[in-house]
């Protein structure tokens, strides 16, 4: 699971009002090199919750992202490089995503988060 996906996931257990962002418990992180696509990064920049992204990146062991970011930073190659690396090259392979409100664990195995809810959570 890449951090872009993490940024799109939330806990929607019945009754939970603020299920985002899910806290990351990282047991195993892998890196896979992908080609950078600046257009895609710029497009996604508007959709991303940066605070959640930077926190998630830190939880994955990569602390090179600024706490805050604005679109003027996209002009910097160095910024784009870090943003690209954190967004698309880091994969949570084993671990869990934790609901911020209830503490419910959504396990991640072999890179696949299990977001299925139990019957009493729907």
């Amino acid at each position: 699971m890449r951090l872009l996906t993490h940024n799109m996931l939330s806990s929607n257990i019945k009754g939970v009002t603020n299920g985002f962002p899910l806290r990351i418990e990282a047991e195993k992180v892998v890196e896979k090199v992908v080609e950078m696509n600046a257009d895609f990064l710029k497009k996604m920049f508007e959709k991303i919750d940066w605070k959640a992204f930077a926190d998630a990146s830190r939880a994955m062991g990569y602390a090179e992202l600024p706490e805050e970011a604005d679109s003027s930073m996209l002009e910097s190659d160095e910024f784009l490089q870090r943003y690209h690396h954190a967004l698309l090259e880091l994969h949570l392979e084993e671990g869990a995503l934790i609901c911020p409100e209830t503490g419910r664990r959504f396990p991640v195995n072999k890179g696949i988060p299990n977001m299925l809810l139990h019957e009493d959570e729907v």
């Binding site: 696949i112 988060p113 977001m115 299925l116």
Partner: peptide, 21 residues
């Protein structure tokens, strides 16, 4: 090729943040 895989019912867990994207 790569796709992000999620074990879920239809799009549960994605609906809030992936809306309109």
């Amino acid at each position: 090729v790569h796709a992000e895989l999620i074990n879920t019912n239809i799009a549960q867990g994605l609906e809030n943040r992936l809306s309109g994207l």
